[in-house]
Design a protein around this nucleic acid. Structure first.
Lengths: 204, 204
DNA sequence: TATATATTGGAACGATCAGTCCACAAACCC
DNA sequence: GGGTTTGTGGACTGATCGTTCCAATATATA
């Protein structure tokens, strides 16, 4: 009894994500969102309530379509022993390729939450969890890649690796060269955690 | 022949720095700057030309009074062998203390340049140099702390360490706990780069 | 056709923004 | 005192912001 829905809110959120990712929350104006989603201002406010509501929807999209899939292999029940290296090499490839949003704009969550106007605490909380999950997932990857390591060393390498990822994501938008260097270094650290002994080459 | 200057532009820039550091460039309104500097709007525009002009002056203050002094010990002609550890421990202390701007707001340059509205390319360039200098200085510190390492390993540790610092600075404002964990990890990596062998304890 | 819902377009709101301008007060020199 | 420069206060501009509102239109069911 009434007109059926024409547009899909998920599509709208996806479109909005591009703009928010590009310009950030504050710098994105509602007219920008109208253009990107193809929706009228009225429809946006009807469906999402506010600019912030649409942003939240975009963040959900980002989490479920960008973050989770990439991290999934490290969170599987059984982690393949080279999953971590693949993950890091994947990131490095995306970064060096430079065509993807992740390379040109970094991580939406880090960008937004660490920007001086962090919007609010729920977003900060998301970033905290994000960091913990990232570190934990990577540590599991290290564990799979180096089962011979003691727990302590595994944990340390895991933290180190996640630090590199965070730093690389932070620098992506400003200093691509630096971001790639960081990822390279991280990969090296995983592949050969101690390939260089004090005296000379390799023990592996 | 005429009224002598009353206020010091450096003081004004210092006062403005606090506000910019706290709120970021975009979110800082000119009235905020009037209040912080104690100057009238007219004086601000007379002395600094624009909001951006005052921001640049604040960045200069930040570089010369916050960044350089802290990094100086690693850039001296002869680096003390434990200068790097002191530098990292200093950062960790500031972060854990939580009373300083650096702990509660992170790095002004990273915050600003990596925020979606990075203001402009000159600021991005500053961050790029910042990262290079940081990495280089830290690498020199590693060199002093571990003269027995081969150049390759020194370089790798240097990059690793600077990645931790960047990541910690990024997270400071959002995830202090995470930032401290990263710094701890970095310190550990420097103090005992291979204290844990695959089989058991220590070689040192 | 009648009715209900979806969607649009555009006008309008109050607020805030950076920046300009100018008359005026304050402090120095001669 | 007069002349000159430094600083202030406040009104103002033109633009943009997020948000609200409503009449009009489109598409479905009954």
């Amino acid at each position: 009894m009434g007109r059926t829905r024409i547009f899909d809110e998920r599509d709208a959120a996806r479109a909005a994500l591009d703009v928010f990712w590009d310009r950030g929350f504050e710098a994105t104006a509602v007219p920008d969102l109208e253009g990107a989603t193809g929706l009228s201002r009225s429809s946006i406010y009807h469906s999402f309530g506010s600019k912030r509501g649409l942003f939240d929807a975009a963040v959900d999209t980002y989490l479920s379509e960008v973050v989770r899939p990439r991290l999934a292999p490290l969170q599987a029940d059984t982690v393949a022993s080279d999953a971590l290296v693949e993950y890091m090499r994947g990131l490095r490839h995306v970064m060096a390729d430079g065509t993807r949003h992740l390379a040109t704009h970094g991580c939406l969550l880090l960008n937004t939450a660490t920007s001086p106007v962090g919007i609010d605490d729920t977003l900060r909380e998301i970033v905290r969890n994000y960091r913990r999950e990232l570190t934990h997932a990577i540590t599991r990857g290290v564990e799979a890649a180096h089962p011979e390591f003691r727990a302590e060393r595994t944990a340390r390498l895991g933290t180190t690796c996640s630090a590199h990822v965070i730093a690389a994501m932070t620098l992506a938008r400003v200093d691509t060269e630096g971001a790639i260097a960081l990822l390279d270094n991280a990969i090296q650290l995983i592949v050969d955690p101690n390939e260089i002994s004090e005296t000379g080459r390799t023990t592996a």
